[in-house]
């Protein structure tokens, strides 16, 4: 018998196995396996049918290249805007106790659970040419947002920013606020303390939130097609191209889908330690 301090590695695992910890009842295990299959099978189907030989040809088609370029530019803009506005918002939600904070948080993260099409419709009625605010943009500044590349960025930011806000807010909440106090006794203004102490301390959450927001923006479809339309070169991003290709050239749709899957999967695997809590470093960052 070995009663020494448990190691993190092999001996501990062996002990766990010996006492049967972590073993599921058989029916639950069966259902879990079905669930895994449910998620895996569609991708297996895609990989099976993918015309691998055509991949490079499809990706180098001018229309696809244009869509790809547009997708990357718009999603990076959306990520940048999410950081610019989302970090102060997260800070407000985490640190300032004001009445109705719960409502504000719900409002600002609503687009996470809203059908994106609804988000697009809402944006259209707010910022469209005849929209509540859009009509003044048009009348006073001659700005028409809908069906422009700007509209793509707005739609993507609308659905992507909450991922960043929630991630950063959670990290800010966990920070010990006394570090702020320490910084202030050393002569740091609130802004200097925020920049030099608080932001670096939530750096990994910032990265995780930004990457999640970027992935969400890259895959945005519903709000984009509703608010920005589907114009090649200006608003037709990769997800829109994929949908369109499915009707005429399903082989192309397959390849574009695989591309989006590869990006999303890469993001999730890359972030597993930091955000999804699956890796060995969970909770440490």
């Amino acid at each position: 018998m070995n009663f020494t301090a448990p190691h993190r590695t092999a001996p501990h695992r062996m002990n766990e196995r010996r006492i049967g910890r972590g073993r599921l009842p058989v029916p639950a295990l069966g259902l879990a396996v079905v669930a895994i299959a449910f998620f895996a099978l569609p991708f297996v189907g895609l990989l099976w049918r993918a015309p691998w030989a055509d991949t490079w040809n499809v990706l180098s088609e001018p229309a696809v290249r244009t869509a790809l370029r547009l997708s990357i530019i718009c999603s990076l803009w959306a990520t940048g805007l999410s950081l610019l506005f989302g970090v102060p918002l997260a800070w407000l939600l985490a640190r300032v106790d004001f009445p109705g904070r719960g409502i504000v948080r719900a409002l600002c993260t609503l687009s996470m659970v809203l059908p994106p099409v609804v988000g697009g419709v809402a944006l259209f009625f707010a910022l469209g040419r005849r929209g509540l605010f859009g009509q003044y943009l048009d009348r006073w500044f001659g700005i028409q947002l809908p069906f422009s590349t700007t509209a793509v960025v707005i739609a993507q930011t609308f659905v992507a920013m909450p991922f960043l806000v929630l991630t950063v807010e959670a990290a800010l909440r966990q920070l010990d606020r006394r570090y702020d106090a320490a910084a202030r006794t050393l002569g740091a203004s609130r802004w200097y303390a925020f920049r030099r102490v608080t932001l670096p301390a939530v750096r990994s959450a910032l990265i995780a939130g930004a990457v999640l927001a970027w992935a969400r923006a890259l895959g945005e479809f519903g709000a984009t097609i509703t608010f920005a339309g589907n114009f090649p070169g200006t608003t037709r991003t990769i997800p829109l191209s994929t949908y369109l290709a499915l009707q005429s050239e399903p082989q192309d749709a397959l390849i574009l889908s695989l591309l989006l899957i590869a990006v999303s999967f890469g993001v999730l695997v890359g972030l597993r330690d930091r955000w999804l809590g699956g890796g060995p470093g969970a909770g440490a960052g």
């Binding site: 006394r178 202030r184 740091a188 203004s189």
Partner: peptide, 28 residues
């Protein structure tokens, strides 16, 4: 606090984890 001339050593020191010892001392 930031405009008083008062140095504080806190109970659990509250050194900034993202900075080196030198950067901590240089912070103020």
């Amino acid at each position: 606090a930031e405009r008083r001339s008062i140095g504080v050593v806190f109970q659990d020191f509250l050194l900034f984890e993202t900075m080196s010892a030198l950067e901590n001392v240089a912070f103020g």
